[in-house]
Amino acid sequence: MSDESTEANLGPAAISQTSSRARSLEGLPFEIQQPILSRAPTVDTLRALVHASPRLHSVYVQDRLPILRVVVEQNFDGFLVDAHAAYLSGTNEFQQSRSEPMLWEFVEAYES
């Protein structure tokens, strides 16, 4: 049964809802939704998309790490190493094991 014959049996409101859903982001296949989420310009935009739609939330949950990795890399372009070093230096493990040789090793690893 074609879309046209299906739409012929529906009322105007149902046709409008069916047509708009097919043209929306939610109507796209997973393979297209995943790269779209990955290209969100900010983490806040990604959060808004994921919270706006159960379908997009499902896509995000299925492929969370790769999507988040791309968004974070885009947002921290050129600063990702700095952000990672700042995070590591703030952990309890780092603070508790801090010694001069360990700090020099950390700085050398950071510079490379």
Rank of each mutant, 00 (worst) to 15 (best):
A109F: 13
D77C: 07
W104R: 12
S38D: 00
V72C: 08
I36K: 08
R69C: 13
R98N: 05
M102E: 09
R47Q: 13
P54S: 09
Q74L: 09
I36G: 11
L88F: 13
L56M: 11
I15V: 15
A8I: 02
T42D: 00
S89T: 07
V81I: 09
A13N: 03
E73D: 13
V61I: 07
L68F: 09
Q74K: 14
D77N: 08
L65S: 12
W104G: 00
L56Q: 01
V59H: 02
R55D: 02
T18N: 07
T42Q: 01
E111R: 15
S53D: 03
P54L: 07
N75P: 00
L65K: 13
V81S: 13
F30I: 10
R64K: 15
H57G: 12
V70N: 11
L49P: 00
P66W: 04
Q17L: 12
T18Q: 09
G27H: 07
N75V: 01
G78H: 06
A13T: 04
F30D: 10
T91L: 02
A48K: 12
P66H: 08
D63E: 09
F94Y: 10
P101E: 08
D44F: 07
H57E: 05
D77V: 03
E4P: 01
R21N: 14
R47T: 10
E4V: 06
S53I: 02
N92P: 14
I15L: 06
Q74H: 12
A85E: 01
V107H: 11
F79C: 08
V50D: 00
H84L: 15
V81E: 09
Q96T: 12
E105K: 15
P41L: 03
G78F: 09
R47P: 03
V72F: 14
A48P: 01
E4C: 02
R47A: 15
E93N: 10
H51G: 10
T42C: 01
R23D: 02
G78W: 06
V70A: 13
M1W: 03
A83K: 14
V43C: 09
A14E: 13
I15A: 13
S89P: 01
L37G: 05
V61M: 11
V59A: 08
N75M: 08
V81H: 10
Q74C: 10
L80I: 15
R39A: 14
A86N: 14
S53C: 03
A8H: 04
S97A: 11
G90R: 07
L49Y: 12
Q96W: 13
R55C: 07
T45P: 00
Q96M: 14
S20A: 05
E73G: 02
T6Y: 01
S97Q: 10
T42Y: 03
A83C: 14
G78K: 04
Q95F: 02
F94M: 04
V43I: 15
L25S: 12
V70G: 00
P101N: 11
V71Y: 05
F79P: 00
P12N: 06
S97H: 08
G27E: 04
E105I: 09
P54I: 05
A86G: 11
Y110T: 01
T18E: 07
